[in-house]
Amino acid sequence: MAGLLEFDGLSRRFGTVTALDDLSFSVPSGQVVGFLGPNGAGKTTTMRAVFGLTDLDAGSVRWNGMPVGATQRRRFGYMPEERGLYPNMLVAEEVEYLGRLHGMDRSSAATATKQWLERLDVADRATSKVEALSHGNQQRVQLAAALVHDPEMLVLDEPLAGLDPTGIDAIGEVLVEQAHAGRCVLFSSHQLDLVENLCGSVVIIDHGRLVARGTVDELATSGPRRLAVRVEGDRQGTWAQGIPGVTVSEVDGGEVRLVLDDATDSDVVLEAARSAGRVTEFVIERRRLSEVFREAVGR
């Protein structure tokens, strides 16, 4: 079920506002791809473009090298930012109906609906009206609706917003499971810690342009290397002063945080620390995704 979703040179203007500015990136299958950006960066417009819900001034969206059309879209699953379900319909009927709109026959849709409602722990509300459910449970039903037809590709706009930890775990688990099963999964979120935990790779956009992309490991270890070192008996970190190619960024209770330039090896720092006393902490620090994000968008 391997697939590749490609965004190629997407541009879209709304009046004087540029929502997308020659945006290009791809989403491979087999991993959850986090789609990040500040509010108004163009994430939702990009996701809507996959489903033809917004017109593009330029560019195209391709699935496995082919332009995305109605046939492809019926094999995609979509969870929009502003949740969309008929409030008066019964939960199971609604999920089944949406499955049938994707081409499932009645019995397959009914079976898949039952399975997904059970999997997402809302089976006991199958005969309730959607409007009678809590926000979190409606979110689970919305995810069931996006998954019921066994899509090859999932696009989820803020699927974790407003959920409690249990809901986040349940939905996050499903997303990872879907990716591991070979689906393409693209989801946006402002909860960067969750993205860091769930995603294999990340795409960051700002003002409709791509500003960073890569695997979480690549982004976390890119840029200047950072060390956190603690030497017994030296709470001021004086041992670290004057090491060529090393800058002290912070000293906090004896822990010294250092930034190394490209030419400086971490062994140089380790030697200097050992010569000053017993080294009780020596950590090569990864950048948090939030740091990567702030650096990428310049805010």
């Binding site: 809507r48 489903f51 033809g52 819900l53 109605a70 879209r73 019926r74 995609f76 979509y78 929009p80 502003e82 949740r83 969309g84 379900l85 008929y86 409030p87 949406l98 709109l101 994707h102 609706a145």
Partner: peptide, 12 residues
Amino acid sequence: SRVVEVLLATVR
């Protein structure tokens, strides 16, 4: 209710 966005993602 925004359900139209979900519907139009797969229905013309």
